[in-house]
Write a protein that binds this DNA or RNA. Structure first.
Length: 103
DNA sequence: CGAGTGACAGGAC
DNA sequence: TGTCCTGCCACTC
C-alpha cells in the first residue's frame, strides 16, 4: 500500500455533490504534509473514470489551472452537475460542499 | 545516486 | 488583506 494508493482510496470515497481540499485528502490519507503528493497523484491520475479528481480543489476552493482531463470549465461543469455550489468568482462554496470525511 | 520539480498548505511578514 | 518563504513526498532527468 503506497501513498498514492491511499490517496486514490480517499479521493474515491468523496461522495457525489461534495468536494475535498488537497490538505483534507492528505490528512485522510494519513499525513497532512502530503498535499503536494496528492496533487502529483491526481496529476498522473491512472484511472480518470474511477478517480473523481475533479472533486479535489485547493484550500481556496479554486480548481487547478493545469487540469489535464478537460480544462477548468469541464471540472466546474462536472461539479455543478453533481450539485456542488459555485460562487460568482468561480470558486467552490466550501462552507456548504466541503466533504467532512465522515463518509 | 543526487538534484530539481510539482494539480499544495500553513505560517510569517 | 495579500504575498512570500518553507516543508513535505514521490517522480523524472
Amino acid at each position: 500500500m503506497t501513498v498514492f494508493d491511499k490517496i486514490y482510496a480517499v479521493v474515491r470515497r468523496i461522495p457525489r455533490g461534495k468536494v475535498a481540499t488537497y490538505g483534507q485528502v492528505a490528512l485522510l490519507a494519513g499525513n497532512p504534509r502530503w498535499a503536494r503528493v496528492v496533487g502529483y497523484a491526481l496529476h498522473v491520475n491512472p484511472a480518470p473514470g474511477e478517480i473523481p479528481c475533479h472533486r479535489v480543489v485547493n484550500r481556496d476552493g479554486r480548481t487547478a489551472k493545469a487540469f489535464a482531463f478537460g480544462g477548468e470549465d469541464m471540472q466546474r461543469l462536472l461539479l455543478t452537475q453533481e450539485g456542488v455550489v459555485f460562487r460568482a468568482d468561480g470558486t467552490v462554496d466550501l462552507a456548504a460542499c466541503l466533504w467532512d470525511g465522515a463518509s
